[in-house]
Amino acid sequence: MDRLIRASDLKRQRAWTDTLIVTLLGAPDALSPNPHGWRAPMRWYREDRVLDAEATAAFTARAERLDDAVAWRRDLPTRSFAPTEIEHLEWLDDPDRIALFHTPRRPRMRRPRRAAPAPPSAPAYEVLRLFDPTTLDHR
């Protein structure tokens, strides 16, 4: 029986991106509920499909362009799971017939910082003098 790899592990441990996953692998082979709350279900791909996709020219060209800060992950072993280890696993009937519409993330737009107000040229307060200090008698 084939072992399964999570999409999140493909991204974290094998330097894949969401766009590559959708382009080279297509629909997942199985889904399971996400244990981290009300989020999208976890996508599972057969290990043999992942290895076949990594052997393609499109993936190897991208892997050669990886930055050294990310490329070292490719040498680490990737977690894979037997289908019996995954709770509530739901196999998709025919992943090739399922259409995926992947919307790439928009780059984060930073708001320009507001310029700090210029410091006032003169003090914004006035000293109130109730008496003339020169007329004080110092003892």
Rank of each mutant, 00 (worst) to 15 (best):
P41Y: 03
L66F: 04
I21S: 11
G37Q: 08
T19S: 12
R49Q: 03
A69I: 08
D48Q: 13
A63R: 15
L25A: 01
N34K: 03
P83C: 12
T56H: 05
P35G: 03
R46M: 04
R73Q: 08
P35H: 02
D18I: 00
H88K: 06
A82Q: 03
L89V: 06
S32Y: 01
E47M: 10
T60C: 13
L20N: 12
P28A: 11
P28R: 13
A40R: 13
I86L: 09
V70N: 08
P83A: 12
R65A: 01
S80C: 10
W72T: 09
D75F: 13
E47Y: 09
A82F: 13
H88S: 06
A63T: 11
A63Q: 09
L25D: 00
A27G: 10
S32V: 02
Y45L: 13
A58R: 11
T78H: 00
A57Y: 04
L24S: 14
A82N: 07
L89P: 00
R74Y: 00
L31H: 02
H36Q: 12
D29N: 14
P35N: 01
R73V: 07
G26W: 01
A55R: 15
R65N: 05
P35T: 05
H88W: 07
T23E: 14
R46L: 01
A55N: 15
A61K: 15
P33C: 05
P83F: 02
D48R: 04
E87N: 03
L76Y: 01
P41L: 09
D52G: 05
L51T: 03
W44Y: 10
P77F: 09
R79M: 01
A27R: 02
V70P: 05
P77Y: 06
P77D: 12
L20W: 13
I21F: 11
T19F: 09
A82L: 14
T17I: 12
A53M: 05
D52N: 08
R62A: 13
D18T: 04
V70F: 09
F81P: 00
A69F: 12
A55H: 13
H36W: 11
P41F: 02
W44E: 06
S80V: 10
L89S: 04
T19K: 07
A57V: 07
R46I: 00
R62K: 14
E64W: 05
V22W: 15
I21W: 10
T56E: 10
L76K: 08
L20C: 04
L24C: 09
E87S: 06
S32K: 01
D67S: 15
R49F: 05
N34W: 07
A30F: 02
A58H: 10
P28E: 05
A57H: 04
P41T: 09
A63N: 07
P77T: 11
H88T: 07
Y45I: 14
E64V: 14
R79Y: 03
R74F: 00
W38P: 03
S80N: 09
T23I: 03
E87A: 08
W72G: 10
P28H: 08
E54D: 02
D29G: 13
W72Y: 15
L24E: 12
R49V: 03
R43D: 01
T56C: 05
F81N: 08
T19W: 03
